[in-house]
């Protein structure tokens, strides 16, 4: 028997409990159960309709005028099933949409799908992510698109190299020209696009410096 969308509610609660920025494991089992619940509601509605048809046909066979009206109780029952179907559909759509938004958000902020999150996606979500990622990449590519990495640069760069100061001990980081050790207070100079991920996770902060000609002031 139907459970008035109880399963769909559990599904959403599970996703909500994981908070923004992470995904809950894709609950295939529950989604399948919700689909079967919708089927069940549909079957019951159809049963009511065919029962009514049968009664009408009987009345016609007896020569009486067929009754077009249905009694209120049947109408309420049908509405109840209908609302349950609509509700389940809405909650499923919210579930899918919310996960899709979080995947997109990850593409923009993390620039890649972390393995831990990837393991929680279903097959079509991974496919969506890959295609979205490819579309974005094409848009940002030199040959077909704007030729800029749009996920970079929270502020416009003044120079290709920037100076950053360590805010926490992150140990050794590997840069394109070699290695550098990030400790609290050390200042290093590195290419802007390599600095960006470090700036985002709060390991380092940007240091402004004046070259004496006022060229590098922000």
């Amino acid at each position: 028997m139907s459970e008035l969308g109880r399963r769909a509610r559990e599904l959403l609660k599970e996703l909500k409990s994981y908070g923004p920025g992470t995904l809950s494991p894709y609950n295939e089992e529950l989604v399948r159960l919700i689909f079967s619940e919708i089927d069940e509601h549909n079957a019951q509605t159809e049963a009511i309709v065919s029962e009514l048809r049968r009664k009408q046909a009987e009345a016609e066979a007896e020569g009486a005028t067929p009754q077009q009206e249905v009694d209120e109780m049947t109408a309420t029952t049908m509405c109840l099933h209908y609302e349950c179907i609509k509700r389940n559909k809405r909650l499923l759509l919210i579930y899918m949409n919310e996960r899709m938004q979080r995947l997109k958000e990850m593409r923009w902020t993390l620039r890649a799908l972390p393995e831990a999150q990837k393991a929680r996606c279903c097959q079509s979500e991974i496919q969506f992510y890959n295609e979205y990622s490819r579309a974005l990449q094409t848009y940002m590519s030199k040959s077909e698109g704007v030729g800029m990495d749009l996920t970079l640069d929270t502020r416009p760069p003044k120079d290709t190299f920037v100076n950053v100061r360590g805010l926490k001990d992150a140990g050794e980081v590997i840069l394109s020209y070699g290695r550098a050790t990030v400790l609290v207070g050390t200042t290093i100079s590195l290419p802007a696009e390599e600095a960006e991920p470090l700036l985002r996770d709060g390991t380092v902060e940007l240091v402004d410096w004046d070259d004496g000609f006022g060229r590098n002031c922000s």
Binding site: E3, E72, M73, T77
Partner: peptide, 12 residues
């Protein structure tokens, strides 16, 4: 309920 419903009493 004003008119009653069929078949869902155990859930509600």
């Amino acid at each position: 309920f004003k008119f009653g419903v069929a078949g869902v009493a155990r859930v509600l």
